[in-house]
């Protein structure tokens, strides 16, 4: 019994160390060929929820246009690029094939606008959880970032993160 408790305590400590190690090295921002993906975040979802959304800022620092053509993540069965639009008071989420980034352009995926739609969640998105999200660009290729799950009603990724 004692051994077990000790073992689990050890595991817990190890887990904490590993986790903090990971978040230090985790990609808050990742850049490839002039395309930068930063500040990726998501909202906590009710337990057992099927759908989630992820947001991020994408900047094309290169002098060529590029296109975000798809997004993928191991936490969802299906991932789509969505845009929320209001039509005559009716709110709709429409699937988009791509997001075009002209040279030097910065696009924010944010509530009420573009988001990454996570369908068929395989993992509960509770506050504090992190998960990987890979953005596929036509020119720059794949860029993977870590998404931080924030409050259920969080409005942005720029809020102060607790750093330990």
């Amino acid at each position: 019994m004692k051994k077990l408790t000790f073992a689990s305590a050890l595991l817990l400590v190890l887990g904490v160390i590993l986790n903090s190690g990971l978040s230090v090295t985790s990609a808050m921002a990742a850049e490839k060929d002039g395309i930068m993906v930063m500040d990726a975040w998501s909202r906590a979802r009710p337990g057992g929820s099927m759908m989630g959304g992820a947001f991020a800022t994408i900047e094309n620092k290169s002098d060529h246009p590029d296109r975000l053509v798809s997004v993928s993540s191991p936490v969802a069965d299906k991932v789509q690029i969505h845009e929320s639009v209001m039509q005559g008071g009716v709110m709709k989420m429409l699937e988009r094939d791509e997001i075009v980034l002209s040279a030097g352009q910065k696009v924010m995926l944010k509530p009420g606008s573009f988001h990454v739609m996570l369908m068929g969640l395989k993992k509960d998105l509770t506050k504090g959880v992190e998960f990987p999200l890979t953005f596929h660009f036509e020119r720059a290729g794949d860029i993977t970032v870590k998404v931080h799950v924030k409050d259920a009603g969080a409005m942005g990724g720029m809020g102060k993160m607790k750093m330990n």
Partner: peptide
């Protein structure tokens, strides 16, 4: 299951 508008 609405991740954008409803939570906002």
């Amino acid at each position: 299951n609405c991740p954008d508008v409803c939570p906002t």
